[in-house]
Amino acid sequence: MREVYFYGTCLVDLFFPDAGMAGIQLLREAGVKVIFPDGQTCCGQPAFNCGYWEEARDVARAQVALFPRDLPVILPSGSCAGMMKNHYPELFHGQPDEAEVRAFSGRVYELTQFLVDVLQVQLKDLGEPVKVTWHSSCHAVRDLGLKGQPQALLGQLAQVELAPLAREHECCGFGGTFSVRQPEISGAMSCDKAADAEATGASVLLSTDGGCLLNVNGTLEAKRSPLRVQHIAEFLWERTHAR
């Protein structure tokens, strides 16, 4: 039986555990044994992006140590996957454990990437007709290089209509510490994103990333919008299982 590791990420751990559970269930349903090592915290990206690389390294090192076996590491986040896959080698450049970290980075996948590219899952839609829209997280697309895997999965769902989001590739304004260091600009970006999302007429905005979801959700709630947000893993699980 195929085995994989699952890395929850701090935002999913704390704010979207249902999305994490759904991701694990989707993998299991595809016939994969999912190992969820205890002791996961954060990939270290916030400190890395702020220039505190020693601190980021300390935390990153603790994560890498949890995944010793040569198994794929699956993350329900494009941003954290991008950090672990592309920025860990940079962060550990010249460190004694660089080789070990690089090997780890080579095993990292974002969830939809793994579902589509490796497992080639086929989904069967059991839900009612629904119109959704897609927010492509900047890091998932530009940093990790996600190329349409989420859309491919949504495309398998017969009753799901994907409404195009204007300026789909524009940042939602989250940006980690940016959201609190530059709250005015971040807020302006978030409000625009929320307005573009509402204009699609969709009832749900989906994304791969907890940061974007937390941000857009908070903004939509503040303006009492009926539009809700959901992590794609949770949405896929719900659509493929009658409640």
Binding site: C138, R142, D143, E170, G175, G176, T177, F178, S179, Q182
Partner: peptide
């Protein structure tokens, strides 16, 4: 710090 590091510029 006035950037969300969205990467649109580099792209």
């Amino acid at each position: 710090h006035g950037s969300s590091l969205c990467g649109a510029c580099g792209e």
